[in-house]
Amino acid sequence: MSADHTAPIPHVSEFKRVYVWELPVRFYHWVNALCILVLTVTGILIAHPPAIASAAEASFGYWFGINRFIHFAFAYLFFFNFAFRIYWGFVGNRFADWRNFFPLRRAQFRQVVDVLRVDILQAQDKPIMAVGHNAVAYFTYFAMFWVFVFQVVSGFAMYASMSTSWFPQLFAWAVPLFGGDYALRAWHYNAMWFFGLFTVVHVYLVFYHDYVEGHGVMSSMVGGWKFLHADVLKGSGKSWFSTKPAPAPKPAPAPRR
Protein backbone atom coordinates (compact mmCIF):
# COMPACT_ATOMS: atom_id res chain seq x y z
CA MET A 1 0.00 0.00 0.00
CA SER A 2 2.52 2.51 -1.13
CA ALA A 3 0.79 5.01 -3.41
CA ASP A 4 -2.82 3.89 -2.99
CA HIS A 5 -3.55 6.19 -0.11
CA THR A 6 -3.10 9.24 -2.20
CA ALA A 7 -5.88 8.13 -4.56
CA PRO A 8 -9.36 9.51 -3.81
CA ILE A 9 -11.43 7.02 -1.88
CA PRO A 10 -15.07 6.88 -3.00
CA HIS A 11 -18.04 7.15 -0.61
CA VAL A 12 -16.06 7.19 2.60
CA SER A 13 -17.23 9.75 5.10
CA GLU A 14 -14.84 11.44 7.33
CA PHE A 15 -15.19 10.04 10.84
CA LYS A 16 -14.62 12.02 13.96
CA ARG A 17 -13.90 10.66 17.38
CA VAL A 18 -16.27 12.20 19.96
CA TYR A 19 -15.89 11.79 23.70
CA VAL A 20 -19.50 11.13 24.70
CA TRP A 21 -19.57 9.15 27.93
CA GLU A 22 -17.42 10.54 30.69
CA LEU A 23 -15.71 8.19 33.09
CA PRO A 24 -18.31 8.67 35.90
CA VAL A 25 -21.11 7.80 33.47
CA ARG A 26 -19.35 4.64 32.35
CA PHE A 27 -18.56 3.76 35.92
CA TYR A 28 -22.20 4.23 36.85
CA HIS A 29 -23.33 2.10 33.92
CA TRP A 30 -21.24 -0.91 34.81
CA VAL A 31 -21.80 -0.72 38.56
CA ASN A 32 -25.50 -0.45 37.82
CA ALA A 33 -25.40 -3.40 35.45
CA LEU A 34 -23.61 -5.47 38.07
CA CYS A 35 -26.10 -4.43 40.76
CA ILE A 36 -29.11 -5.26 38.62
CA LEU A 37 -27.63 -8.63 37.72
CA VAL A 38 -26.83 -9.52 41.32
CA LEU A 39 -30.12 -8.15 42.66
CA THR A 40 -32.13 -10.03 40.05
CA VAL A 41 -30.37 -13.33 40.61
CA THR A 42 -30.48 -13.11 44.40
CA GLY A 43 -34.04 -11.80 44.19
CA ILE A 44 -35.20 -14.74 42.10
CA LEU A 45 -33.47 -17.06 44.55
CA ILE A 46 -35.34 -15.38 47.40
CA ALA A 47 -38.63 -15.80 45.57
CA HIS A 48 -37.94 -19.33 44.35
CA PRO A 49 -35.35 -20.99 46.57
CA PRO A 50 -34.15 -24.20 44.96
CA ALA A 51 -34.86 -27.44 46.77
CA ILE A 52 -31.62 -28.36 48.43
CA ALA A 53 -32.36 -31.48 50.35
CA SER A 54 -29.97 -31.82 53.21
CA ALA A 55 -29.91 -34.06 56.18
CA ALA A 56 -27.87 -31.53 58.11
CA GLU A 57 -29.26 -29.51 60.97
CA ALA A 58 -30.36 -25.99 60.15
CA SER A 59 -27.63 -24.56 62.34
CA PHE A 60 -24.98 -25.89 59.93
CA GLY A 61 -26.25 -23.95 56.97
CA TYR A 62 -26.86 -20.31 56.21
CA TRP A 63 -26.83 -20.07 52.41
CA PHE A 64 -30.27 -18.50 52.19
CA GLY A 65 -29.36 -15.93 54.81
CA ILE A 66 -26.18 -15.08 52.92
CA ASN A 67 -28.15 -14.79 49.70
CA ARG A 68 -30.47 -12.30 51.35
CA PHE A 69 -27.52 -10.42 52.80
CA ILE A 70 -26.02 -10.04 49.32
CA HIS A 71 -29.35 -8.77 48.08
CA PHE A 72 -29.51 -6.13 50.81
CA ALA A 73 -25.88 -5.10 50.43
CA PHE A 74 -26.20 -4.65 46.69
CA ALA A 75 -29.43 -2.74 47.25
CA TYR A 76 -27.41 -0.12 49.10
CA LEU A 77 -24.77 -0.04 46.38
CA PHE A 78 -27.50 0.25 43.74
CA PHE A 79 -29.15 3.13 45.55
CA PHE A 80 -26.02 5.19 46.08
CA ASN A 81 -24.82 4.54 42.56
CA PHE A 82 -28.19 5.74 41.27
CA ALA A 83 -28.06 8.81 43.50
CA PHE A 84 -24.59 9.54 42.12
CA ARG A 85 -25.90 9.34 38.55
CA ILE A 86 -28.64 11.85 39.36
CA TYR A 87 -25.96 14.17 40.74
CA TRP A 88 -23.96 13.69 37.57
CA GLY A 89 -27.01 14.73 35.57
CA PHE A 90 -26.40 18.22 36.94
CA VAL A 91 -22.64 18.47 36.60
CA GLY A 92 -21.80 16.12 33.73
CA ASN A 93 -21.46 16.88 30.05
CA ARG A 94 -24.41 17.65 27.82
CA PHE A 95 -25.03 14.00 26.97
CA ALA A 96 -25.40 13.16 30.64
CA ASP A 97 -27.54 16.19 31.43
CA TRP A 98 -30.78 15.53 33.29
CA ARG A 99 -32.79 17.61 30.82
CA ASN A 100 -32.27 14.99 28.10
CA PHE A 101 -34.43 12.59 30.08
CA PHE A 102 -37.47 14.82 30.39
CA PRO A 103 -39.71 14.62 27.38
CA LEU A 104 -40.41 18.34 27.10
CA ARG A 105 -39.11 19.60 23.75
CA ARG A 106 -40.76 19.30 20.37
CA ALA A 107 -37.43 18.27 18.82
CA GLN A 108 -37.29 15.32 21.16
CA PHE A 109 -40.69 14.10 20.08
CA ARG A 110 -39.73 14.56 16.43
CA GLN A 111 -36.77 12.32 17.03
CA VAL A 112 -38.96 9.74 18.74
CA VAL A 113 -41.00 9.55 15.53
CA ASP A 114 -37.82 9.35 13.46
CA VAL A 115 -36.38 6.55 15.57
CA LEU A 116 -39.62 4.58 15.39
CA ARG A 117 -39.69 4.98 11.61
CA VAL A 118 -36.03 4.33 10.93
CA ASP A 119 -34.90 1.86 13.55
CA ILE A 120 -37.98 0.05 14.73
CA LEU A 121 -40.35 -0.09 11.74
CA GLN A 122 -37.55 0.46 9.23
CA ALA A 123 -39.91 2.26 6.91
CA GLN A 124 -37.22 4.72 6.00
CA ASP A 125 -33.46 4.64 5.85
CA LYS A 126 -31.68 7.77 6.97
CA PRO A 127 -29.11 8.63 9.59
CA ILE A 128 -30.42 9.88 12.91
CA MET A 129 -28.65 12.83 14.44
CA ALA A 130 -27.92 11.58 17.89
CA VAL A 131 -24.54 11.96 19.47
CA GLY A 132 -25.58 10.81 22.96
CA HIS A 133 -28.62 8.57 23.17
CA ASN A 134 -31.49 9.07 20.80
CA ALA A 135 -34.71 10.46 22.23
CA VAL A 136 -36.39 7.06 22.55
CA ALA A 137 -33.44 5.78 24.54
CA TYR A 138 -33.43 8.78 26.85
CA PHE A 139 -37.13 8.39 27.56
CA THR A 140 -36.79 4.68 28.13
CA TYR A 141 -34.06 5.36 30.67
CA PHE A 142 -36.27 7.97 32.26
CA ALA A 143 -39.02 5.39 32.65
CA MET A 144 -36.45 2.98 33.99
CA PHE A 145 -35.32 5.52 36.57
CA TRP A 146 -38.84 5.45 37.95
CA VAL A 147 -38.67 1.69 38.20
CA PHE A 148 -35.38 2.19 40.07
CA VAL A 149 -37.13 4.58 42.42
CA PHE A 150 -39.96 2.14 42.96
CA GLN A 151 -37.59 -0.75 43.63
CA VAL A 152 -35.56 1.34 46.06
CA VAL A 153 -38.61 2.58 47.93
CA SER A 154 -40.42 -0.76 48.07
CA GLY A 155 -37.27 -2.70 48.89
CA PHE A 156 -36.11 -0.48 51.72
CA ALA A 157 -39.68 -0.19 53.02
CA MET A 158 -39.81 -3.96 53.47
CA TYR A 159 -36.32 -3.93 54.91
CA ALA A 160 -37.17 -1.17 57.41
CA SER A 161 -38.82 -3.41 59.98
CA MET A 162 -35.79 -5.74 60.01
CA SER A 163 -33.36 -2.92 60.49
CA THR A 164 -32.54 -0.51 63.26
CA SER A 165 -30.68 1.76 60.87
CA TRP A 166 -32.24 5.13 60.12
CA PHE A 167 -31.86 4.92 56.37
CA PRO A 168 -34.44 2.21 55.56
CA GLN A 169 -36.87 3.90 57.95
CA LEU A 170 -37.04 6.79 55.49
CA PHE A 171 -39.02 4.52 53.19
CA ALA A 172 -41.27 2.82 55.76
CA TRP A 173 -44.25 4.92 54.62
CA ALA A 174 -44.59 2.77 51.52
CA VAL A 175 -45.92 -0.20 53.53
CA PRO A 176 -49.20 1.43 54.62
CA LEU A 177 -49.47 3.01 51.18
CA PHE A 178 -49.69 -0.46 49.65
CA GLY A 179 -51.75 -1.82 52.54
CA GLY A 180 -49.08 -4.17 53.83
CA ASP A 181 -45.85 -6.01 53.18
CA TYR A 182 -47.38 -8.70 51.04
CA ALA A 183 -48.73 -6.39 48.33
CA LEU A 184 -45.53 -4.36 48.39
CA ARG A 185 -43.46 -7.47 48.06
CA ALA A 186 -45.56 -8.71 45.15
CA TRP A 187 -45.04 -5.44 43.28
CA HIS A 188 -41.35 -5.37 44.13
CA TYR A 189 -41.15 -8.78 42.52
CA ASN A 190 -43.31 -7.92 39.51
CA ALA A 191 -41.19 -4.85 38.79
CA MET A 192 -38.15 -7.12 38.65
CA TRP A 193 -39.46 -8.45 35.34
CA PHE A 194 -38.98 -5.02 33.84
CA PHE A 195 -35.22 -5.41 34.20
CA GLY A 196 -35.21 -8.77 32.46
CA LEU A 197 -37.17 -7.43 29.51
CA PHE A 198 -35.20 -4.20 29.45
CA THR A 199 -31.88 -6.04 29.37
CA VAL A 200 -32.93 -8.21 26.45
CA VAL A 201 -33.99 -5.22 24.37
CA HIS A 202 -31.11 -3.01 25.54
CA VAL A 203 -28.41 -5.51 24.65
CA TYR A 204 -30.06 -6.30 21.33
CA LEU A 205 -30.26 -2.63 20.36
CA VAL A 206 -26.61 -2.04 21.22
CA PHE A 207 -25.73 -4.91 18.92
CA TYR A 208 -28.09 -3.54 16.30
CA HIS A 209 -26.65 -0.03 16.32
CA ASP A 210 -23.09 -1.26 16.26
CA TYR A 211 -23.92 -3.69 13.46
CA VAL A 212 -25.84 -1.28 11.27
CA GLU A 213 -24.23 2.08 11.97
CA GLY A 214 -20.69 1.17 12.94
CA HIS A 215 -20.28 4.08 15.33
CA GLY A 216 -18.74 1.98 18.05
CA VAL A 217 -21.75 2.27 20.35
CA MET A 218 -20.80 -0.86 22.18
CA SER A 219 -17.26 0.17 23.00
CA SER A 220 -18.39 3.71 23.82
CA MET A 221 -19.47 2.47 27.24
CA VAL A 222 -15.92 1.27 27.84
CA GLY A 223 -13.74 4.02 26.38
CA GLY A 224 -16.28 6.81 26.15
CA TRP A 225 -15.73 7.56 22.45
CA LYS A 226 -18.10 7.27 19.57
CA PHE A 227 -17.06 7.52 15.94
CA LEU A 228 -19.43 9.71 14.02
CA HIS A 229 -19.69 11.10 10.52
CA ALA A 230 -18.35 14.62 10.46
CA ASP A 231 -21.36 15.81 8.44
CA VAL A 232 -23.73 14.36 11.06
CA LEU A 233 -21.87 16.15 13.81
CA LYS A 234 -22.30 19.49 12.08
CA GLY A 235 -26.04 19.27 12.50
CA SER A 236 -25.92 18.06 16.08
CA GLY A 237 -24.19 21.03 17.61
CA LYS A 238 -27.39 22.46 18.99
CA SER A 239 -28.75 20.97 22.12
CA TRP A 240 -32.40 20.03 22.77
CA PHE A 241 -32.44 22.46 25.61
CA SER A 242 -31.52 25.94 24.61
CA THR A 243 -30.54 27.05 28.09
CA LYS A 244 -27.30 25.16 27.86
CA PRO A 245 -25.63 25.64 24.51
CA ALA A 246 -23.09 23.19 23.26
CA PRO A 247 -19.74 23.95 24.80
CA ALA A 248 -17.12 25.58 22.64
CA PRO A 249 -14.58 23.05 21.43
CA LYS A 250 -11.77 22.85 23.91
CA PRO A 251 -8.23 23.33 22.69
CA ALA A 252 -6.57 20.02 22.16
CA PRO A 253 -4.71 19.00 25.29
CA ALA A 254 -1.00 18.86 25.13
CA PRO A 255 0.09 15.32 24.32
CA ARG A 256 1.15 13.47 27.40
CA ARG A 257 4.69 12.31 27.58
Binding site: M1, D4, H5, I9, P10, H11, V12, I120, Q122, D125, Y204, Y208, Y211, V212, E213
Partner: peptide, 26 residues
Amino acid sequence: HAVMTNIRKRHDIGEHPGESSDLAPP
Protein backbone atom coordinates in the same frame (compact mmCIF):
# COMPACT_ATOMS: atom_id res chain seq x y z
CA HIS B 1 -36.45 -7.25 13.84
CA ALA B 2 -33.01 -8.75 13.31
CA VAL B 3 -34.20 -10.53 10.17
CA MET B 4 -35.82 -7.37 8.89
CA THR B 5 -32.67 -5.36 9.63
CA ASN B 6 -30.58 -7.67 7.48
CA ILE B 7 -33.00 -7.21 4.62
CA ARG B 8 -33.98 -3.57 4.85
CA LYS B 9 -30.60 -2.22 5.92
CA ARG B 10 -28.38 -4.53 3.89
CA HIS B 11 -26.77 -1.50 2.23
CA ASP B 12 -25.65 -0.14 5.59
CA ILE B 13 -24.22 -3.37 6.92
CA GLY B 14 -20.74 -4.73 6.41
CA GLU B 15 -17.97 -3.51 4.16
CA HIS B 16 -18.73 -0.38 2.22
CA PRO B 17 -16.95 0.62 -0.95
CA GLY B 18 -13.62 2.07 -0.02
CA GLU B 19 -13.64 0.73 3.54
CA SER B 20 -11.62 -2.36 2.95
CA SER B 21 -8.52 -2.40 5.11
CA ASP B 22 -6.13 -2.53 2.14
CA LEU B 23 -7.65 0.71 0.85
CA ALA B 24 -7.36 2.56 4.12
CA PRO B 25 -5.07 5.55 4.17
CA PRO B 26 -1.95 5.05 6.21
